[in-house]
């Protein structure tokens, strides 16, 4: 499985660390419901098919990315940068595509 890092280009998935379900939304700090927090921490759909997930390029530029991946076939449909440098990285993605990396 290869993931195209928005900074480094296409790399083996072993350079990345899986950081969890990107669809899980942390409850508001004002939300005191234990059930809501329990659901955020533990409850996952375990989707068989297309899934949005967070990965970190730990052995590379250490950028967080949202990967849309088929959990059955491992086909990767997209890989987008997230976080404070996302806009800067999005510009780099266009250059990487232009360079064929």
């Amino acid at each position: 499985m290869k993931i195209t890092c928005p900074y480094c280009g296409e790399r083996d998935h072993r350079e990345f660390t899986y950081r969890g379900d990107a669809t899980a939304i942390r409850p508001s700090i004002d939300n005191t419901s234990l059930d809501d927090h329990q659901a955020f921490v533990y409850d996952r759909k375990n989707t068989a098919g297309t899934h949005r997930e967070l990965w970190n390029h730990t052995s590379g530029c250490r950028t967080h990315v949202v990967v849309v991946r088929d959990t059955v076939s491992h086909e990767i449909f997209s890989c987008e940068p997230v976080g404070p440098f996302a806009k800067q990285l999005a510009r780099n993605v266009a250059k990487l595509k232009g360079a064929g990396a």
Partner: peptide, 18 residues
């Protein structure tokens, strides 16, 4: 495990890997 071909990794280039 990275592409070392000069087109992908030219002279003057920097890559981080493991």
């Amino acid at each position: 495990a990275m592409d070392f071909h000069v087109n992908a990794f030219p002279g003057g280039g920097v890559q981080l890997g493991h």
